[in-house]
């Protein structure tokens, strides 16, 4: 899973029917030390997190199927957790 920061949302009224209940967020991918990696994702929000929060993203197609409970949803990655604290020891 990768760490991201929510920077915006996506609103779409005309879309594939399977994406009806999808809540799409735009996420900036960062490494555990907060350095942006230059990648941006549009992900399904499985937890309901606000803009500016750090989140954990599962980047695998099987994930969204479980979250939305529907098969062949054309979304690949999803937010699975809101990050409260990142501890680096080493």
């Amino acid at each position: 899973m990768i760490i991201g920061e929510i920077i915006g949302t996506v609103v779409s009224t005309i879309k594939v029917s399977k994406m009806e209940q999808a809540r799409l967020k735009i996420v900036k991918i960062i490494n555990p030390f907060g350095k942006p990696t230059g990648k941006y994702f549009i992900v399904e929000d499985g937890v309901g997190v606000g803009v500016g929060e750090k989140v954990l993203i599962s980047d695998d197609d099987g994930v969204v199927k479980r979250l939305l409970g529907k098969d062949n949803v054309p979304i690949r990655s999803a937010i699975v957790a809101k990050i409260d604290k990142i501890n680096i020891y080493d």
């Binding site: 555990p32 479980r66 990142i86 680096i88 020891y89 080493d90």
Partner: peptide
């Protein structure tokens, strides 16, 4: 990978509740 840290998260998908989240290099 080497475990260098962990992540604390209270608001997460229910199936992840009992899981420990580690950061690996």
């Amino acid at each position: 990978g080497k475990v260098i840290g962990n992540i604390v998260s209270n608001a997460k998908v229910s199936e992840l509740k009992p899981m420990k989240l580690y950061i690996l290099q």
